[in-house]
Computed example of a mutant assay.
Amino acid sequence: MRCDGRLLALNSYENRVYQLGLEEGGFCVVKFYRPGRWSDAAILEEHRFVAQLAEREVPAVPPMEIPGHGTLACLDGQRFAVFPRQGGHAPELDDPDTLSLMGRLIGRIHGVGATESFRHRPHLNLESFGRSARAFLLDNHIIPPELETVYRQVVDQALAGVERCYQRAGHVALLRLHGDCHAGNVLWTDGGPHFVDFDDSRMGPAIQDLWMLLSGDAGSMAAQWERIREGYETFRDFDPRELHLIEALRTLRLIHYSAWIAQRWDDPAFPPAFPFFDSPRYWEDRILELREQIAAMDEPPLL
């Protein structure tokens, strides 16, 4: 594939992703993987999952075969994959029909995801997204000293609330997920949506790929959920006990997100992108956020 010099950096902090113009016409997208994050086996599991979805006509965008390399190539120690470019815009999640379609498509993704398990990619749970993130932030003294004690108290209360939510849910099935199924990872066109960026794909409960489609107050989320659930159950049953996990998973995401930024703070791309991260104001906002989540986790789940 000969490039014609057109180069556009796309919005990605975890990896480096570029749109490249091709001499033969059109474009491709190249993802250069962050060193040390995933093993080759874990990346190839992600590629296999997306390929399985595409084979079953689920609108996901799998990587292309690179002659002599499969879907994962390496040059001078730098691993990369090449994807066809897929344009589109974020879905309009205030449209009930869009929510129903998203539910149907995620139901199909999970139908494929449940057919086998990841062996090399992690699980989404209290330990991986909560306790380990807390430990990194506190053990490395990331929080400003004047706020460290109160942050420690609040994050411990939040994680105790997450544990209670998991206890209320009981045993729920784990399956291969998209893992980061927010509106920015869905590209909508006149022909419908395409799911992209399965880089955070892992084992977890089905609700993880659904709750990020919800927004607003409890009444609004309940109405949105009803449309999503109806679409989802066209293809796959949903275990209602997982509704106990929505606010728990939101809490884990908030804690994990701060640790994710901290772990990559030496990357030159991060300080300009998150200029307030090392300020007291950032952590005051996170403390308030977690206090709100502590209260939310004690509320009844969506019906």
Rank of each mutant, 00 (worst) to 15 (best):
V61S: 07
G103R: 07
P96C: 00
H89G: 14
P84K: 13
R79M: 07
L99E: 02
F83A: 06
G68Q: 10
P67C: 13
P96Q: 08
L93V: 09
G70Q: 08
F80R: 00
S100R: 15
A73C: 10
M64Q: 14
P91V: 04
P91C: 05
I66N: 07
T71E: 06
V58D: 00
P84F: 05
D76P: 03
I109P: 01
L75P: 00
R108H: 01
D94I: 08
L99W: 12
L101I: 06
G77V: 04
D76G: 09
R85H: 15
E57T: 02
P62H: 09
A90F: 14
R104T: 00
I109H: 00
D97E: 15
P62M: 04
L105Y: 00
L72H: 08
M102W: 05
R104M: 08
L101S: 04
P91W: 12
H69P: 05
G103E: 01
E92I: 09
E92R: 15
I66P: 10
V82R: 07
P84R: 13
E57H: 07
G88N: 01
G77K: 11
G87V: 03
D95Y: 09
M64A: 14
L101E: 14
P62I: 07
A90L: 13
H69L: 04
R79K: 15
M64V: 06
F80S: 01
D76S: 13
T71M: 00
E92G: 13
F80P: 01
G111E: 13
V58Q: 01
L99P: 07
L99Q: 12
L93Q: 11
R56H: 14
P62Q: 02
H69N: 06
I66T: 07
A90R: 15
H69Q: 11
S100C: 14
R104L: 08
M102A: 14
V82Q: 06
V82Y: 00
G107I: 05
F83W: 07
R108P: 06
P91R: 09
A60R: 04
A90V: 10
E65Y: 11
P91H: 01
D76A: 15
G103M: 07
G107R: 01
P84Y: 05
D95F: 12
L99F: 12
P91Q: 08
D94Y: 13
L75E: 13
M102D: 03
T98A: 14
P84W: 07
P84T: 06
P62N: 06
Q78G: 10
D95S: 09
L72P: 03
L72C: 09
H110G: 03
E92Q: 15
P96V: 04
Q86E: 00
P91M: 08
P84A: 13
D97Q: 14
L93K: 03
